[in-house]
């Protein structure tokens, strides 16, 4: 297990009350560990340390939590565990008290590429999850129209993903996940491939969607500024093995705007998180250099 978590704060109470909290589910990770080579012969060159070890994390209904960490800290693995795409080798993930056993529409996923179905229009992409449910066509269309409108793409419903910009594609991906009305939305570097200006727009947009839908959000990013700007809590992961080293509340007003980025409290927290991430990143690279030499 990891060393004493000096910086860790009790993880249950959100710093800022969620806007509605009703649409969101409670996510709980207890002692979650992931070792991709557990029980098997370790292939040559594979790291001898598990990817994740002893992760305890509680996300309250309607809370917005950001996970940051340098590459190799297992943050994507953590998200995939919550999504149910992989099973933890230790511990348990529960949503509203029920164990996560596999992927499901109550845990929507948005990844960096968007992973839109390229043969489906924006509207048909959003409709995908609803088509699998016993739902009248008219009702489905009504919901798709609402979500298209919510993400500001009402004029683009007939476009194929190839005809949309990067930011628009991510909006469709978010709407597609939301259309299933998930208890928690999982975002894996959703804006990592966007240019800076689009990214800024998308961050404000995501805060708005979160406020509108009241869903729980768990977002993974390597962009510390983004994490502090968006989250109510920022969880810092370190590598070798991947573990939680800090869980910091973001004490900023709920209505975040561009001015938030100049708020001294914002700048202070950003610097603190950046220092933490950098510290663990450097420790990781020097360990790598030591094993390589």
């Amino acid at each position: 297990m990891s060393g004493p978590d000096l910086t860790k704060t009790p993880a249950t109470a959100p710093a800022v009350p969620a806007p509605t909290g009703e649409g969101g589910g409670a996510l709980l990770l207890r002692g979650v560990g992931m070792d991709f080579h557990a029980g098997r012969r370790r292939p040559a060159g594979a790291p001898a340390i598990p990817t994740l070890v002893g992760v305890d994390l509680a996300v309250a209904p309607g809370e917005f939590v950001c996970i940051v960490g340098a590459s190799g800290s297992g943050k994507s693995t953590l998200l995939r565990l919550v999504a149910g795409l992989i099973r933890p080798t230790e511990g348990q993930v529960t949503l509203d008290g029920r164990p996560v056993e596999g992927p499901g529409p109550e845990r929507g996923l948005v990844c960096q590429s968007g992973a839109l179905f390229p043969w489906r229009t924006a509207a048909a992409n959003i409709a995908f999850g609803l088509e699998l449910l016993p739902m009248p066509r008219a009702e489905r269309r009504r919901r798709v129209a609402w979500y298209l409108n919510e993400v500001g793409l009402e004029a683009y419903g007939d476009r194929l993903p190839g005809q949309l910009s990067g930011g628009q594609r991510q909006r469709v991906a978010i709407a597609r996940a939301l259309a299933c009305e998930p208890r928690v939305v999982l975002l894996d570097e959703p804006f990592g491939a966007l240019d800076v200006q689009t990214k800024e727009d998308m961050q404000l947009f995501l805060r708005q969607v979160w406020a509108d839908t009241g869903t729980t959000v768990l977002m993974v990013t390597h962009d510390v500024e983004e994490a502090v700007f968006l989250g109510q809590r920022v969880v810092v992961l370190a590598s070798d093995p991947g573990r939680v080293v800090a869980d910091l509340p973001v004490r900023l007003p709920a209505g975040r705007d561009l001015g938030t980025r100049r708020d001294p409290a914002f700048l202070e927290l950003r610097a603190e998180v950046e220092d933490l991430v950098r510290l663990h990143h450097r420790a990781h690279t020097s360990r790598l250099a030591a094993t390589a030499g």
């Binding site: 529409p105 929507g108 449910l133």
Partner: peptide, 27 residues
Amino acid sequence: IPPDLLEVSGTLGARQHEIARKVILPY
């Protein structure tokens, strides 16, 4: 087929046969 399409289909509630019919086949 890109693996992330298969993964995201699962998180949208598609069962295995639905992934085969509605994702892999059209792709």
